[in-house]
Design a protein around this nucleic acid. Sequence first.
DNA 1: GCCGTTTTCGGCCCGACTGTTTTCAGTCG
Length: 578
Amino acid sequence: MKNREIAKALNTIADLLEIRGDNPFRIRAYRRAAQILEDLQRSVEEMSDQELLSLPGIGKDLLTKIRQYQREGKMEFLEQLKREVPEGLTELMAVPGLGPATARLIYEHLGIRDVDALERAAMEGVLRGVPGIREKTEKNILKGIQILKRTRVRRPIGMVMPLAEEILEALREVKGVKRCAIAGSLRRWKETIKDVDILACAEDPQRLIRAFVSLPSVERVLVSGPAKTSVILRDALQVDLRIVQEDSFGSALQYFTGSKEHNIRLRELAQRKGLKVNEYGVYRSDGTRIGGETEEGVYQALGLPFIPPELREDRGEIEAAMDGRLPELISIEDIRGDLHIHSIYSDGRNRLEELVEEAMRRGYQYIAITDHSRRLAIAGGLDEDRILEQIREIDALNKKLNGFRVFSGVEVDIMNDGRLDLPEETLSRLDFVIASIHSGLKQSSEILTMRILKAIGSSYVRMIGHPTGRLMPDRDACEVDLETVYREASRTGTALEINAFPMRLDLNDTAARRAAEHGVKLIISTDAHLKDQMGYMRYGVAVARRAWLRKEDVLNTLTLPEFQNWLRNRKAPHSLIS
DNA sequence: GCCGTTTTCGGCCCGACTGTTTTCAGTCG
């Protein structure tokens, strides 16, 4: 899959054009194309010219460049830019507050082209000799470098959301605060988060701002004005607080929720209708305001139904909204069970009763206990005897439970040759078998795909766990050929997991969407190793919503009898397994 | 560089904050 590589090349072109001071719209076109390729679920290598050109944002020129990269592994235009603009200059732009124009100025006057040299120059006070840079800017650049060094990686949403909710709680308690809400990528439930946006209305904005900057977790104030205040927390997370008038809360929430791409599309649409949309409201050309109190009202003024924040990525949601084709998205209340949970039998921390209690507290009707199999010794994987022991305990437990059901399961390892880590005899005794890859993730695409297909071919496997094996931020998705997996999963009625564990979120949003398009059923499960981690379900549901999934695409929305029925009935005979 | 129910040329989203600029450019989201 070369899409990522090509997207990166296009983004580099955009960076270099920025430094060169090129046409901003041309730059935007390159960035947009890069985004399109990243979102694409098929490799450009298997797409025809026609198909590529049909993507809005890819024209003749970009097509030529993509094909050239495919053939030659490079783009002539990029190489030419690299000769023209010193490489490394783009590195300077990673410093917050330092953009292309300043990067270029600094290079032209001082020959600096990497962050270390920049830091030295700033500390020595040499930087302020550059036209347009005085003491203040020099200091800000130093601060920016420190921030950059600490915040290079985006963090999984599961690490950020609890922090943001804590801050939100604290702000809501400030006297005179009328409204307070999370906006930005966090409200869209993007899988990784760079900073937190909070929106508020207050009778006394100054009081709120003072309370905000003096929160104990705040380390430094970046900017502070009446409308926007930004801080850096001790753990290097940036939080922006925006204060707006109550009557424009809706348009502000819409505006600051983004995504940027979604908003651009929306405002283009508005323009064609002779309207103007900004964070204060929706306006006619004569200045009359026709919306802004509520977010629904903003969309309505543009002739659109409300678009859920999770869909606002410019992935077709505006077109779908115009045509009345928006899906009714799954929600957390639809979830009736958690089917991937580890107990004290392997590397989990809780006993079965504790897990059941937690599940009932969440209003679930069923769970599956799915400990590791023997080969995963490091996680205390179970052999046949221990599994039989666990089945007996689950049977006994079920007798005591009324209307709630514990399914006996396992997360059986898919070994390097594609065989499963437990004999069929053992698997046949279990209610719910997950098969997952935990090793050999760097194998070739052919071998990885073969392993998963063999697992799907087993008569006992009902779900493939975390299909791509990624672990953020260190391990990327493995190179399994997902399109082939979707086809076989769909044919055999094997479910694919949306693993809700914050470092995994696997399948991710775009992959899950593609899977559902193939007719694959998904299961959202937490992979909990502690009972509290069953609370990760909301991150999995968020992935599903971002994947445009409806309740009926997800099996653990089924009631207990319906799910038992699914367990009993297999869709197609499995034939591949030895 | 892309794109077309005002356009094949001339548009392309919009505003806040900062610093050094005496009227605005750069950066960010």
